[in-house]
Amino acid sequence: MRLRNRHGASVDPVPFFVVVGLAFMILLSFGPLYGQALGFPLEIAIALSAAAFTVAAVAAFYRQVWTFRPEHTSAVPSAVRAERLFQLIPILAALLVALAVPLVVG
Rank of each mutant, 00 (worst) to 15 (best):
A98S: 06
A93D: 09
F17V: 10
S29M: 12
A60C: 12
T54M: 07
F30Y: 11
M25D: 15
V58W: 01
P90K: 06
T54F: 06
V97I: 12
P32K: 06
G31P: 05
E71Q: 07
V80I: 13
L22A: 09
A100N: 01
A75I: 05
P13C: 00
F61K: 02
L38S: 14
F30E: 15
A47E: 08
V101T: 05
L27N: 01
V76Y: 11
P102K: 08
V80E: 08
G35N: 01
V55S: 03
A52V: 15
R81M: 14
S49K: 01
T67I: 04
G8Q: 02
I46K: 11
F16M: 07
R69E: 12
F40I: 13
A47K: 13
F61D: 02
V14T: 14
A50G: 03
D12H: 10
G106I: 04
F40L: 08
L28D: 01
V14H: 03
L96Q: 07
A45P: 03
H7V: 04
A57H: 02
E71N: 14
S74I: 09
A60I: 13
V105G: 06
V76T: 15
P41I: 09
N5T: 12
I44P: 08
A47G: 13
W66H: 02
S10W: 00
V105C: 12
L99G: 11
A93F: 15
Q36I: 12
P70H: 01
A9Y: 15
L92Q: 09
A60E: 03
L3Y: 01
A52G: 08
V18K: 00
V101W: 05
V19H: 12
Q64P: 06
A59D: 07
G39F: 14
S78W: 08
S78I: 13
G31K: 03
L48V: 10
L48H: 03
R2P: 00
G8Y: 00
G35L: 01
V80F: 15
S10I: 02
Y62Q: 15
V55P: 03
L96D: 14
L38Y: 12
P15A: 01
A57I: 04
L33G: 14
V101R: 06
G31D: 06
L95C: 09
L92N: 13
A60Q: 09
G31H: 09
S29P: 08
A45Q: 02
L42S: 10
V14F: 10
L3A: 00
T67W: 03
V55M: 07
V104Q: 06
Y62M: 14
R4A: 10
V20Q: 06
L88S: 04
S29T: 14
L92E: 11
P70Q: 01
V20D: 06
V97H: 01
A50P: 02
A59C: 07
S10R: 02
A23V: 08
L88N: 07
S74A: 09
V18F: 01
L85M: 13
D12G: 08
V80P: 11
A100V: 00
F17I: 15
A23L: 01
L92D: 05
P15G: 05
A51Q: 13
A45L: 12
A50E: 10
S78Y: 10
